[in-house]
Design a protein around this nucleic acid. Structure first.
Lengths: 198, 198
DNA sequence: TGTACATCAGTGAACGCGCGTTCACTGATGTAC
DNA sequence: TGTACATCAGTGAACGCGCGTTCACTGATGTAC
């Protein structure tokens, strides 16, 4: 049966949201059309009324994931007006990103740590969406880097801090459950280092 | 037709080697039984004479990948006897790991950057093999960390340096081909930082 | 404003393909005498 | 050492399953008059 334009648009939004969440939870290979549609409260057949292919969905979901991540950092950055504010915001961010809670969370919320490896051999569209997301994320993340360095230096610091956080979370997640001591050690060492450098 | 024990053992070694290479090239989801067997010069049917399942193969291949990586670091570490040796060895290692050549290489040689994301939702065996590999790699990598810090501090530095390298390579690989400027920038910024801290 | 028809979002069965896995079969190797 | 038989690595067809995708159909929505 036909459905109102608004209802259809809402359904598409639900599909995208479900896909984004599933992408963050299970990675690119865990993103299934049927599961997404089911989680959106629909049957799989109607999927192609909204997206051209599964890859198109994955690209859109990745973009949406970055939207959320960028928005969250930007919100934090907006809270920090003074230099000391920026320092505490940055530390808070580090502490939270490299916490056991983040590591053990189902919904990772960080697309870079969730699908970073997969994207490398993904479609062209996926790589473009990823690169665009990283670019946007870096712009926002640079604004929470504390200190009085110039813009170029701050950007470099944002890049290195981001790399370190993503690498650490990736290692910590992969080791969790089977070697929690090592996983905890990784999180603690990297957290300590990033905070110390602040 | 039956085959001599030595020939069978050699075939198993070929299978494992092909699987290890494929795992490094294409990640966990790119590891197919048929392709592995074909690359080992065999037909897929005989696979189960050597491995219990595809997962068992993946676990063994991941272990073998770590064997190679650990061996390479250990060899480097063995070359450095003086403090200044360690410094140059470490810098050489960083420069090479974060080079465009490594980024663009088909055969990544670094299991952590190749399958890090996938392992998080892989089988229990995969996670165990990964954690064991990281543990071994860290022991070897700690020996190339320069400076006169004590053992605990050096280990912490090894962990942070490794996290940074893996994160940077993951980001750089994912962005390569679609935003080479960004990819290059990431590699350069992280390389510069790690060398500067040496 | 009301009526008649076209449109199209959603449904659920079905298709095609690839992948992991199984199986009957082959014939050289390994072993028992 | 030679012979007879059992073993088992390798082969290639086949199975079963899941997944992305297609399709005929439904019926409420949107539109034309």
């Amino acid at each position: 049966m036909r459905i109102s334009k608004e209802a259809a648009a809402a359904n598409k939004a639900h599909i995208l949201q479900a896909a984004s969440q599933l992408l963050l939870e299970k990675g690119l290979s865990g993103l299934g059309v049927s599961e997404v549609m089911q989680q959106a409260g629909l049957t799989h057949g109607g999927f192609y009324n909204h997206f051209e292919s599964k890859d198109a969905l994955a690209v859109a979901a990745l973009g949406a994931s970055f939207d959320g991540a960028v928005e969250r950092v930007a919100k934090r950055a907006a809270q920090a007006s003074t230099a000391s504010d920026r320092k505490s915001v940055f530390r808070f961010y580090i502490d939270r990103y490299l916490s056991k809670g983040t590591r053990d969370a189902q919904n990772l919320q960080c697309p870079m740590a969730a699908v970073g490896t997969d994207v490398a051999q993904g479609s062209e569209g996926m790589k473009t969406a990823f690169a665009e997301g990283v670019k946007r994320y870096l712009l926002a993340f640079t604004n929470v880097i504390p200190g009085k360095a110039n813009a170029a230096r701050k950007r470099a610091e944002a890049i290195t801090a981001l790399s370190t956080m993503i690498g650490a979370l990736t290692l910590a997640r992969a080791c969790a459950g089977t070697n929690d001591d090592l996983s905890d050690e990784i999180l603690a060492a990297v957290r300590e280092k990033l905070v110390r450098e602040t």
